[in-house]
Design a protein around this nucleic acid. Structure first.
Length: 482
RNA sequence: UCCCCAGUAGCUCAGUUGGUUAGAGCGGCGGACUGUUAAUCCGUAGGUCGUAGGUUCAAGUCCUACCUGGGGAGCCA
């Protein structure tokens, strides 16, 4: 084969000149045609679009052409031509074809037809090769990049917080144990309990549920920091919005109060969504079309807003900011409630809002993202700053349509006595958290932060309905195949 | 973990009050067609009906348990 440098399909589809030779490599999506001419739709992952390869059949060996099946990897050298067909501007007229990897069409699970997302989840090792999962992977990368770009522009430092942690006091959820002890015969203490002093780290350790506490340590020296790493929850959650392993972004800022915190959260979300609109339009258009095809069978009032319109709407409008107690009043006085349409009654101040209540506020009442603030102290974590009313804390949850809570955050309690008292009330072992409390003993200062579930953001930006489809290899109860 | 629904060909599904040899579309394979757009047309091969018990003369169909998947709830991001 002639030595021509490979061109990616995304680049090739942009060319304005024709007549030159080019080399492309990729995987066959479909092949069709007759005895005279074949058309191969080739994709190399560089963009959503396929490149059309035109093959003048008599110029090639019949047996070789037969090997070009759906899924096969091939390399083509040919002339870049203006297409006489209507589906594309340019195409390649093949001069040389090399089969890089055969693909037995009889056994290959991905057929040139529509597959259900549930089926593709069972073959997650191959689903990157579909339009949908290719688009999601490219959007996911763009969002990762945009996260770092946003914080870099604002002078935040990225901090790597530990993945293995001995702190089990955060209270964010059940944890996965990390140990090298022999599970069949663990060392025991005199009391008959497992002796973690013998374990690798000399104490019981777990996979982290949050980098927040370590993030606070960094923020209280460096000013503004953020983490972006994997987090783990061993909750037996079987929903389309939870994973056992997910990626979380947790900024933590010294000198920020709750309003500053909310301003940052809103600006951050809008930045990310705008970045997707500015940089991933081809993929978003595909995902939007996919969503509309899927919703064709739904009733008009059950359909969601068109994806791109929805994203533009979010960046164009201010988020609603509403104290929890006002939200309770609003819910109690709503027509929806008076007609008895809530499955769960509003219990009044003190109880957490049910999903249906959050959805009512976001999707029916305000019809835009809502930030709820000042929750009752009893349903929130120990580290949140206590309000003067003695019953609420400076917490904030950002609620998005369809997704629910996408961000949870708060101003942190910087007062040593109040924090220590709260830890005792909530059975948080203060002795083990001496390092955390030290920040309040030495130069303590007002500070705030929040956590954004990266896959929840991905759900919103891609319009996908199941969180297991926006992470390449989902970890969930009974799910760790790939 | 709880509630509801589903599991039949490689995929998506149909299968009547329980009753002969379980069907379709797509995909695969074979063929036709000189420019197709997930091409079209003709032909063809694919099934231990999720697993294990049970009821019955007879079970894809009814019952029980379990497994897997989906929707919703809780936990949360």
């Amino acid at each position: 084969m002639e030595q021509i440098r490979r061109t990616k399909i995304a680049e090739l589809l942009k060319v304005t000149e024709t007549g030159q030779l080019a080399n492309v490599k990729g995987w066959v999506r479909t092949k069709r045609g007759n005895k005279q001419v074949n058309f191969i739709a080739l994709n190399d992952g560089s963009c959503i679009h396929n490149l059309q390869i035109v093959v003048d059949v008599p110029n090639f060996d019949e047996a070789e052409l037969k090997r070009i099946t759906t899924g096969a990897a091939i390399s083509i050298v040919g002339e870049v031509c203006e297409s006489s067909g209507s589906g594309q501007k340019v195409e390649i007229h093949a001069k040389e074809i090399e089969i890089l990897g055969d693909c037995d069409a009889d056994k290959y699970p991905l057929q040139p037809k529509k597959h259900s997302l549930e089926f593709l989840r069972e073959i997650a090792h191959l689903r990157f090769r579909t339009n949908t999962f290719g688009a999601i992977a490219r959007v996911r990368h763009a969002m990762i990049f945009a996260v770092h770009e946003f914080f870099t522009q604002k002078g935040f430092l990225n901090i790597h917080t530990p993945i293995v942690t001995a702190s089990d006091a955060e209270g964010a959820g059940e944890m996965f144990k990390v140990t090298t002890l022999d599970l069949d015969n663990p060392p025991k203490t005199e009391e008959g309990e497992i002796d973690f002093k013998e374990d690798f780290f000399g104490k019981a350790t777990n996979l982290t549920v949050s980098g927040q506490l370590e993030g606070e340590l960094a923020a209280l020296a460096l000013g503004e920091i953020y983490t972006f790493g994997p987090t783990f929850r061993a909750e037996n959650s079987n929903t389309s919005r939870h994973l056992a392993e997910f990626w979380m972004i947790e900024p933590e800022m010294a000198f920020y109060d709750l309003d500053d915190n909310m301003d940052l959260a809103e600006e951050f979300l809008k930045y990310l969504i705008k970045y997707a609109l500015d940089n991933c339009m081809d993929d978003l258009k595909f995902l939007s079309q996919r969503l509309q095809d899927e919703e064709k069978n739904k009733k008009a009032d059950e359909r969601t807003m068109e994806l791109i319109e929805k994203l533009q709407f979010v960046i164009a409008n201010d988020f609603v900011r509403l104290p929890y107690s006002d939200a309770i009043d609003l819910l109690i006085n709503s027509k929806h409630n008076k007609k008895g349409k809530f499955k769960y009654p509003i219990d009044g101040f003190g109880s957490d809002l049910q999903s249906e209540h959050e959805r009512f506020l976001v999707e029916k009442h305000f019809k835009k993202p809502v930030i709820l603030t000042d929750y009752p102290a009893d349903i929130k974590a120990f580290y949140m700053k206590q309000n003067d009313d003695g019953r609420t804390v400076r917490a904030m949850d950002v609620l998005f349509p369809q997704i629910g809570e996408i961000i949870g955050g708060s101003q942190r309690e910087e007062d040593y006595e109040k924090l220590e008292r709260r830890m005792k009330e909530m059975d948080v072992p203060a002795e083990e958290m001496w390092w955390y409390l030290d920040t309040r003993r030495f130069g303590s200062v007002q500070h705030s932060g929040f956590g954004l579930g990266f896959e929840r953001l991905m759900l919103f930006v891609t319009g996908m309905g199941n969180i297991r489809d926006v992470i390449p290899f989902p970890r969930a109860p009974k799910t760790a195949e790939f």
